[in-house]
Design a protein around this nucleic acid. Structure first.
Lengths: 215, 215
DNA sequence: ACTGGTTAACTAGATAGTTAGTGAGTGAGA
DNA sequence: TCTCACTCACTAACTATCTAGTTAACCAGT
């Protein structure tokens, strides 16, 4: 980790571009995003990132200790962005909320595929890189908690059957991961809709099941 | 593609090491397998593969046009191996067969994790490499057909409810993919058992459901 | 003599990270 | 107010290393 990364981003709070000190990191993060989309992650050179904004490659090494530091900071930046987006979304009833969450995880949150490809590349490097792995764990833990909490709310409200929220959340995220993997790797455009249907089937049988204890 | 790859492997039929011409390719494939396990796929140099057997790096370029050709041939080799293993397995009742298939896809077929990591790395390169992508598509198509066929048999035998075999197969493979991804990326050892349980739940509700048409 | 398998040595290109420096601003002391 | 010391953001140019792929040649068997 460098001296100047995640904390600045935390402070920037998603609506940066006002403080002079925050701008550089923000600009680098945005350049990284663009570079990942166009080059992928595996053969993404630091030069390629530098080309995406108006400063030099050296500046990147001035702000970040290494390419690895830069990329894991980028993952942290993504998580913060996602958190902010979630925090900004309106709170509705659990059914709508769960529905929206599934949709955004399955189809979004980033509308374009090339970025998802890059994220998969980074994920495939997680086993060799503790910083990446930790970031992905954090990310996953956050989304898992979020999902479980929505389910829990639904149970409390009586609109969902009393299931194990953790178990259902795990199951949902596993299916979503599998679907996105297949979309990205094989380019199978049908898989998202099929999976969405399968998830709905599944939820109908568990969350929305009539409570008929057969014992 | 080089002049000398998949067809030789086809002919070798999994039990090579007898013909002089087949030995080289077979040896390279095995060296590739070992090298992938120890180095991963992303920073796997041709030299690293050469180090895994007793011949020189140049020989690899003599047999394969490029690193890419070598790796996509390796994917083809893997599929052939898997086919042979499936062909060699005993044919039992659909229930046992489906059960074994799920287990081998989820926990196996290669007992060690480092190889699965390498395969994920290769998959993450599929979007940039048509040869890889085609191989993975072939692979997926084969496993899908295999799964669907087993389910179909079960339906014919009357032990499974009349479901859509394609749909169930897609669903199974998606969950299995998602679980393996999480295992490999996050090192979550619990996910396989959880997913296995979820699959069993799911199959209980569909394949083994009592036929009670409520209409 | 010719072919197929095999090799050492080399080329060419890429890239992470370093170095040594520039220049604009800032604050303290005279 | 001037200026000296110092720092921060920033850069061009360089180094060191790695690696895919090539070349030219060697050798054993036929």
């Amino acid at each position: 980790m460098s001296e100047t990364n995640a904390d600045d981003i935390d402070a920037a709070d998603g609506t940066a571009e006002q403080a002079d000190s925050g701008t550089a990191n923000e600009a680098i993060m945005e350049a990284t995003y663009r570079a990942l989309r166009t080059h992928g992650a595996a053969d993404l050179s630091v030069q390629a990132i530098a080309d995406e904004f108006d400063k030099s490659k050296s500046l990147i090494f001035y702000h970040y200790d290494s390419r690895e530091d830069l990329l894991s900071s980028f993952l942290a930046y993504l998580l913060e962005n996602f958190k902010n987006r979630v925090a900004a979304s309106e709170i509705t009833d659990p059914v709508t909320q769960l529905d929206g969450l599934i949709d955004s995880l399955l189809y979004g949150p980033d509308d374009n595929e090339s970025f998802q490809i890059a994220m998969l590349e980074l994920r495939s490097q997680a086993p060799f890189n503790e910083a990446y792995r930790d970031q992905f764990r954090r990310n996953r833990a956050y989304v898992h908690r979020l999902t479980a909490r929505v389910i829990d709310c639904g149970i409390d409200d009586g609109v969902f059957a009393p299931v194990d929220p953790d178990y259902i959340a795990t199951l949902l995220l596993t299916m979503i991961d599998g679907a996105r993997l297949q979309l990205v790797v094989l380019g199978d455009e049908t898989i998202l809709d099929t999976t969405r249907a399968a998830i709905d089937d599944r939820l109908d049988e568990t969350l929305f099941a009539e409570q008929t204890p057969s014992d």
